[in-house]
């Protein structure tokens, strides 16, 4: 069940990563707040990393989240300072039900995402979901509030 659910949750990310998903799928399902805002890789992302992101997207669409995770790790090894990659990994882990890991990865993304309010907001939303999944309602609310503040200031 989780794998199927994860698939839907990834839709915005798939869209963000390169419009390979037919537009018809966009309105399929209510998109959880954790998937907003949509984060795209920076313009200076090297081609090798773009290639790996594209393949990770394909893998995720095919329901192979473990493969997507491995491909994103390869991308991180190539471009470890790229906060977008860490954010994507956080999402993939979140969808696999690894809330603690997702939170760690989102925090790592945030530590590299200075000045990128959109990405920070997206990370805080992931953190909010991860905390909620672990039963930390107060923590989730706090994270949500930070995301809201970042979103409002955008």
């Amino acid at each position: 069940m989780r794998r199927v659910a994860g698939w839907w949750l990834l839709v915005p990310w798939l869209l963000a990563a390169g419009c390979a998903v037919p537009p018809a799928e966009e309105g399929f399902t209510p998109v959880p707040e954790a998937e907003r805002p949509v984060v795209v890789p920076g313009r200076d992302t090297p081609p090798a990393v773009r290639r790996l992101i594209a393949r990770a997207r394909e893998a995720a669409r095919a329901g192979r989240l473990d493969r997507a995770e491995a491909l994103l790790e390869r991308a991180v090894r190539i471009d470890p300072r790229n906060p977008v990659l860490w954010h994507y990994m956080a999402r993939v882990h979140l969808h696999q039900g690894r809330a603690a890991r997702a939170e760690g990865l989102a925090a790592k993304s945030n530590s590299l995402a200075r000045g990128d309010r959109l990405l920070q907001e997206a990370n805080w939303r992931v953190i909010a979901h991860a905390r909620a999944a672990r039963g930390d309602a107060a923590g989730a609310r706090a994270a949500e509030a930070r995301a809201e503040a970042l979103g409002a200031g955008r």
Binding site: D66, E69, A70, E73, V76, M89, H93, A100, R101, G104, L105, A107, K108, S111
Partner: peptide, 25 residues
């Protein structure tokens, strides 16, 4: 270790990149 595959080449276990914030960056 990054991953362990079975004889058919399917991952038995991955050891994913794991980061956890331990201290205020």
């Amino acid at each position: 270790i990054r991953e362990v595959l079975d004889a058919r080449g399917e991952p038995l276990k991955r050891f994913p990149l794991n980061v956890e914030q331990a201290v205020d960056p």
